[in-house]
């Protein structure tokens, strides 16, 4: 009993792999849809982004203690980021589907083609909701005052940048089957830029945590040492950042492998952030 009742710092145990997958898939799908809308990519990209966000929602449902009551999650949009997120996801799935629909052969009869006023309006709403879907996962974590490594404005920025990088990973992975209609050199350049920017943001995040309170420092220590440190160093940094960076710069023909590495790194990054979420320990003063 003494061990359980000690005052030592402990990390949260509630959110793990499933939540990491939900955060990853939601952000990834939203960011991919942004590429789809703004770069006018093929309908398959839009469909995939809708599928990813749907999959993220299903994973979240599986994580809930009472999935049948999930409809209640839209009740508190003025205070809860989970509530807002569910509303963003629903709005995105509706407007995104309506935007992608006319591009598909079997639904080409729909009157709101992308070049019509209705189509443009829908596309804009879907784009904004996709942006919100990409942004909200970081805010869900940042809203917890109990965990200093989450409760920082840097985390939503980092999650957003990682999601955009992950979307580039999808485009790299499927570039050979026509997901990217422009030159592969442009995609590699974009991926290089995002990989470097994301890595710099990650370093800034760790640097800020390392210079914060005892609990944030403990989070950084857990990311550097032990089994979680192993996952972070080899999974997030090496496989998720350095290897794809080398591939897109030195071996452009291995774009699919680089994309797969970016995606693996994205999942592991979220897992590491969750596992390294250390509560502020109890103090006697």
């Amino acid at each position: 009993m003494t061990a359980d009742f000690s005052m030592q710092p402990r990390s949260q145990q509630e959110w793990s792999w499933l939540v990491a997958m939900d955060l990853f898939l939601g952000g990834l799908g939203g960011a991919l849809f942004l590429f789809f809308v703004f770069l006018k990519l093929p309908a398959a990209v839009g469909l995939l982004s809708l599928g990813l966000v749907t999959a993220g929602g299903l994973v979240l449902l599986a994580e809930l203690g009472h999935p049948a009551r999930a409809w209640r999650a839209i009740c508190r949009p003025f205070s809860s980021w989970i509530s807002r997120g569910v509303i963003f996801v629903l709005l995105f799935l509706v407007t995104g589907s309506l935007t992608v629909g006319p591009l598909l052969a079997s639904f080409s009869w729909l009157p709101w083609a992308p070049d019509t006023l209705g189509g443009k309006t829908l596309g804009m709403i879907a784009g904004v909701s996709a942006l919100l879907v990409t942004l909200y996962p970081g805010f869900v974590l940042a809203a917890s005052p109990s965990i200093p490594s989450w409760n920082t404005p840097l985390l939503p920025v980092l999650f957003f940048s990682n999601s955009v990088m992950g979307a580039t990973g999808i485009l790299l992975l499927f570039s050979s089957i026509g997901f990217w209609s422009q030159s592969i050199a442009e995609l590699n350049a974009l991926a290089t830029l995002l990989l470097i920017a994301n890595f710099v943001l990650l370093l800034v995040y760790l640097l800020v945590l390392g210079n914060s309170g005892i609990s944030a420092k403990e989070s950084v220590r857990r990311l550097r040492e032990g089994s979680l440190g192993w996952v972070f160093r080899w999974g997030v940094v090496l496989v998720g950042t350095i290897v794809p960076l080398l591939l897109v710069v030195l071996l452009p023909s291995a774009a699919a492998l680089a994309g797969a590495c970016v995606l693996a790194g994205g999942v592991l990054f979220r897992y590491c952030v969750l596992e390294a979420g250390v509560y502020v320990p109890f103090a006697l003063t």
Binding site: E14, L64, R69, R72, C75, R76, S79, S80, S144
Partner: peptide
Amino acid sequence: VTVCPTGASYTREQDNLVLINQDKCIGCRA
């Protein structure tokens, strides 16, 4: 209470107690 998406966690007005309505809780752990 702030992070609860359903209102299951609430403050009882009459005496400021923080309580949980289990029928509303979806088990999200937030």
